[in-house]
Amino acid sequence: MNNILIRDYLPSDKDAAMQCFRSNVPKFFSASDESWFESALDEPDGPSFVMVHPEEGVIGFGGYEVSSTYNSAVLVFGQIHANWHGKGLGKKLLEHRIAHLKANAQPTRYLVVDTILKVAPFYVKHGFEIVAHWKEGFRDGADRIDLRLVLL
Rank of each mutant, 00 (worst) to 15 (best):
M1F: 11
R7L: 04
D8A: 14
Y9H: 11
Y9I: 09
L10W: 08
S12Q: 15
S12H: 02
D13K: 08
K14D: 12
D15I: 04
A16F: 07
A17S: 13
M18W: 07
Q19F: 00
Q19A: 07
C20P: 13
R22H: 13
R22F: 11
R22S: 09
S23P: 09
S23Y: 08
S23N: 05
V25Q: 03
F28H: 13
F29E: 03
A31R: 02
A31S: 11
S32N: 09
S32F: 05
S32T: 14
E34W: 00
S39Y: 04
S39P: 03
L41N: 12
P47W: 04
M51C: 04
M51S: 03
V52I: 12
H53T: 06
H53N: 03
E56P: 01
G57S: 12
V58F: 10
G62I: 01
G63Y: 07
E65W: 12
E65D: 05
V66S: 00
S68H: 09
N71I: 01
S72N: 07
A73P: 08
L75E: 10
G78V: 10
Q79C: 04
H81Q: 10
A82C: 00
N83W: 00
N83L: 05
W84V: 01
H85T: 04
G86C: 05
G86A: 05
L93Q: 11
L93C: 10
H96P: 08
R97G: 01
R97N: 02
I98S: 04
I98V: 08
H100S: 14
H100E: 10
A103T: 03
N104M: 01
N104V: 00
A105C: 12
Q106E: 13
L111S: 03
L111H: 04
V112N: 14
V113L: 15
D114W: 12
T115K: 11
T115I: 05
I116L: 02
L117N: 13
L117Q: 15
P121T: 01
F122P: 05
Y123F: 15
V124R: 10
V124E: 15
K125V: 06
K125H: 15
H126M: 08
F128N: 12
K135M: 06
E136Y: 07
F138A: 00
R139H: 10
R139F: 10
G141C: 10
G141H: 03
A142Q: 13
D143I: 01
R144E: 09
R144Q: 08
I145Q: 03
D146L: 08
L147M: 12
L149K: 10
L151D: 14
L152Q: 08
L152H: 05
L152V: 09
L152S: 14
